[in-house]
């Protein structure tokens, strides 16, 4: 088992192999995303029963929860890619890490916007300093910090290494920030308002799971498309890219 992971690791380390392989995988991933998200959303919007407490506004959950888990997962993935960049100095990892940041940031932003919109009918205000929303806001700032540093450094390699250090430091701080924000939130707002009703009926839960898996497929698709651009950008001098560009 370990040998195959090692082999895959080295194979996917070469930009050309990564480009070709992901090109083949892309259609399947897109199909997976569509086949999961469309049914999940339609089921969640149209067929899931209204919540006895919140009526229909809870249906925003089918976008909000996947976005939240993706924003968090993407940051951790960026930190792991950062470790690979710093320890094994793999160029491919640099390109993947660089492409994750904007996607993760958009999902963090999406999570905040949908959370705020969901909050309006539920709590009567657009923004509530709820522990999870506040942690997500700080996560978005962390993303912005990583992207700002990435743009500030011209040399692609030192940019990748600098952002790797920053995303690792950020990843170490995420649990600390989460814990302190939750402590701060309970201090100032004892009545903790839960976003969703306590026990979720299965008709509500299954579409949510479909959406979450679907969003992870979607994330894979977006990441692969962005990383392939990064490969063309950084490998444009190599002749495999030149042939690729010339014959189509």
């Amino acid at each position: 088992m370990f040998a195959t992971i090692k082999r895959l690791y080295h194979q996917f380390g070469s930009p050309r192999y990564f480009y070709d392989m992901t090109g083949k995988m892309l259609p399947w991933l897109i199909a997976g995303a569509v086949l999961l998200i469309i049914p999940g959303i339609v089921w969640g919007l149209a067929f899931a029963p209204p919540d006895y407490l919140q009526g229909n506004s809870y249906r925003i959950m089918y976008i909000h929860v996947p976005a939240a888990s993706l924003a968090m997962g993407a940051y951790v993935m960026m930190a792991v890619a950062g470790v690979v960049v710093l320890v094994w100095r793999m160029k491919m990892a640099e390109m993947v890490a660089r492409s994750i940041a904007p996607i993760g940031a958009s999902f963090a932003f999406l999570c905040l916007i949908t959370g705020a919109i969901w909050g309006k009918p539920t709590w009567g205000t657009w923004w509530v300093w709820d522990a999870r929303l506040t942690s997500m806001l700080i996560l978005l700032f962390l993303y912005i910090g990583v992207m700002a540093l990435n743009m500030a450094i011209e040399n692609a390699q030192s940019a990748a290494r600098a952002t790797a250090v920053l995303s690792i430091v950020g990843a170490v701080n995420i649990p600390i920030i989460k814990y302190s924000v939750e402590w701060w939130n309970t201090l100032h707002q004892p009545a903790s308002i839960s976003m969703t009703s306590s026990s979720m009926a299965t008709e509500m839960l299954i579409p949510l799971l479909l959406c979450i898996f679907g969003f992870y497929f979607l994330f894979a698709v977006l990441l692969i498309m962005a990383t392939r651009c990064e490969i063309l950008q950084r490998e444009q001098r190599s002749n495999w890219v030149r042939q690729l560009v010339e014959n189509n």
Partner: peptide, 20 residues
């Protein structure tokens, strides 16, 4: 300015417990 953008999010826990 970049130092501020990088460092501010990481200040949050210290700020919370300091003011706490």
């Amino acid at each position: 300015v970049l130092v501020a953008i990088i460092a501010l999010p990481l200040y949050v826990p210290v700020l919370i417990f300091g003011t706490g």
